[in-house]
Amino acid sequence: MEILKADIEDHETLTSITKKSKAYWGFSEDILKEWEHLLTVTKDYIAKNKVYKLVQNNEIIGYYSYFFTDEKTIKLDNIFILPEFIGKGFGKILMNDFLKKTKQLDIDKITLDAEPNAEIFYKTFGFETIGKLESSIKDRYLPIMELQIDNKNIS
């Protein structure tokens, strides 16, 4: 198993992983179709952002992506795993790799808009919920989460 920088040619595979992973949480086909533009990973997106894929036995089984929102803040934009690998520690592997990479950067915080089903997952890594963002589904809110970085303790 290895984590590699994604190539623009990976866009269709990453899009498929995103859609399958989102569907895992029981969203209807109508909702997934409404979110099509949000669940699509384009070649341009991969070219402009930091995108890393998790490869096992020559198959991409998950990925994460992030970008800078300002010079001291990173937004974790995506972290998705194929449904058959959810709950088996692969999300933790991706998250640890992401956090390791961010330690090499001079940043103050990491933000993300969480899938409500994944809020507890992010809290295990020290993220705190600081707000909520209304989704397109009535009475469904995405937790806005943040992790403050203490660069003094980074070695």
Rank of each mutant, 00 (worst) to 15 (best):
D10C: 02
G131I: 03
Q148G: 03
I93G: 05
I110F: 05
T73E: 10
E36N: 14
E71I: 12
G131Y: 08
T73S: 15
F67Y: 15
N117R: 11
I144Y: 09
E146A: 02
N49Y: 01
F127G: 08
N96D: 14
L112N: 05
A114K: 06
D10F: 01
I74C: 06
K109P: 07
E2I: 13
F27S: 05
Y66W: 12
K103F: 05
K75A: 13
N78E: 12
E119M: 05
G131V: 05
D150F: 00
L38Y: 11
T42Q: 00
D139T: 07
Q148N: 13
L99R: 08
T40G: 00
L94C: 12
E12V: 09
E34K: 15
A118F: 03
E134H: 07
D106M: 03
D70Y: 04
Q56T: 11
T124Q: 14
W25V: 01
E115W: 05
Q104I: 03
F127S: 07
K123W: 04
Y141D: 06
L112V: 03
S135K: 04
N96S: 11
K109C: 10
D150I: 02
K88V: 02
I61K: 06
L82I: 14
Q56A: 12
I8E: 13
Y52K: 10
E128I: 14
E9L: 09
A47K: 15
Y63W: 06
K75H: 11
N117V: 00
K109V: 05
L76T: 09
P116Q: 03
S155F: 03
I79K: 05
L105G: 01
S136G: 13
G89K: 06
N151D: 02
V55Q: 11
K72L: 07
M1Y: 07
A114R: 08
A47P: 00
N78Q: 13
Q148I: 14
T111Y: 05
E29A: 14
M95E: 13
D139F: 12
Q148S: 12
S65K: 02
L147G: 06
M1F: 08
K33T: 15
I8A: 00
E134N: 10
I144L: 14
E59H: 12
P116E: 04
I107A: 05
K103M: 13
G89F: 03
T42N: 00
I31R: 02
K152T: 06
Y122S: 05
K152G: 01
T102P: 01
N117L: 04
L82E: 15
I60V: 15
F90R: 06
N96R: 14
L76E: 10
L54H: 10
M145F: 08
I137P: 12
T102C: 14
I17F: 10
L142D: 03
V41M: 04
D7L: 12
Y141N: 13
A47F: 02
K50S: 14
K109Q: 15
G126H: 06
E34D: 15
A47Y: 07
N49Q: 02
S16N: 15
P143T: 07
P83Y: 10
L38Q: 12
K20E: 15
I86R: 09
L112W: 05
V55L: 10
E29F: 06
Q148D: 08
G91L: 06
D108T: 08
I79W: 05
P83K: 07
E29V: 11
G126V: 04
T18P: 00
A118R: 03
K5T: 03
I149F: 04
S65E: 02
T69C: 00
S136E: 10
